[in-house]
Simulated scan of single mutants.
Amino acid sequence: MRTTTVGDVTVLLPDLDPEDLDQVTDLPDDDLRHGLVEGVSWRGQQIADLSIRGCRITGADLGEITWEGGGFYGCEIVRADLSGAALTGVSIERCSVTGSRFTGTRLIDVRLKDVLFGNCRFDYATLSRVSAAGSVAFTDCTLVHGTWSSCRLSGVALRSCDLSNLELDSCRLDGADLRGSRLHAFAAPLDNLQGVALTEDQLPDLTRMAVNALSIDVRADAARGHDR
């Protein structure tokens, strides 16, 4: 059993042996199990209720796919391109996703459990009603200019990520570990962030958020009169 620990979050990872996997090039009509998927292009495909289990997917072009239902279980996904994809009602469980691109991707009603995202790009991505049903960690990921709404991501780890200009609306990120992450122009209601873990050098960004949330009027000191 493989695990990795990010902050206080321990993620259960897939344990695949490439010698046990069969080479796959075509998108199957039925569930895909124990496949080695390398360098394929399924760009723009429409996929429904397809489950991929125990597979290693490397260098795949999955950009602009429309995927509804099904999901990934016990998979390793490396350097895949899902830019512009739309995933709805998909489950991602016990998966490692590294070096992959989710630029402009829409994740809707997606369920995450024991998932590690490492060095991935989620710039301009939209997450709606995404939920963490178990351990979830993002490390060294870029999530700039994204929009997250109605997500349930309590206790996730977002370590050493770039969260600049990321906007949260009605999300539960309470107890999340944000240490080492860049929070420039990060926007979220304060009650979405209850109990998050930060480092001392991140406090100015939190102060800025509080000032904006409370519409505090910060003014220069009034000039003092001089005695004659």
Results as ranks from 00 to 15, higher is better:
A80M: 01
I47M: 02
G54R: 13
K113P: 00
G70F: 05
D61Y: 02
F122R: 09
F117M: 12
D109F: 14
D81E: 06
V110W: 04
T66E: 15
T58M: 06
E93L: 14
T88P: 00
G118S: 12
V110Y: 04
G69H: 02
G54E: 08
F72Q: 04
L82G: 07
E93I: 13
F117V: 11
G63M: 01
G104T: 09
G70E: 06
L82E: 00
C95Y: 04
S96P: 00
A80G: 15
I57P: 07
S100A: 07
E68Q: 11
Y73W: 10
R106Q: 09
G104F: 09
R121V: 14
A80F: 00
L107W: 11
R111I: 15
A85W: 01
R101C: 08
T58F: 06
A48P: 00
F102M: 14
G59M: 03
R106I: 07
G69Y: 04
Y124M: 10
S91L: 12
V115L: 11
S83W: 05
A125E: 06
T105Y: 01
E93Y: 06
E64S: 15
C55N: 12
V110R: 02
T126R: 06
I65M: 14
E68F: 02
D123L: 08
T88I: 07
T103I: 15
L87D: 00
G118K: 05
I108Q: 10
G59E: 07
G74I: 04
S131C: 14
R101T: 13
D61S: 08
F102H: 11
R121I: 12
V110P: 03
G74P: 05
F102C: 05
G54Y: 01
L62M: 14
C95S: 14
E68L: 04
R79Y: 03
S100G: 06
R94H: 12
C120V: 13
G84L: 08
R106P: 00
I52S: 05
I52K: 05
F117I: 11
S83A: 15
V78A: 04
D61N: 14
R111Y: 06
I108R: 09
D123C: 10
L82C: 12
C120F: 09
I92D: 01
C55D: 08
G118C: 03
I77M: 13
T98N: 03
V130F: 13
R111K: 14
V97I: 15
G71A: 12
F122C: 11
T88H: 08
C55R: 13
Y73C: 06
L127I: 03
S128C: 09
T66S: 14
E64C: 11
S100V: 06
F117H: 05
D81H: 13
T88D: 13
R94W: 05
A125R: 03
I65D: 04
G118A: 12
V115P: 09
G84W: 02
T66D: 15
E76I: 10
R111G: 09
S131I: 14
T126N: 04
I57N: 06
G99A: 07
I65P: 06
D61R: 15
G71M: 09
A60I: 00
R111W: 07
G99Y: 10
S128W: 11
K113T: 12
Y124T: 13
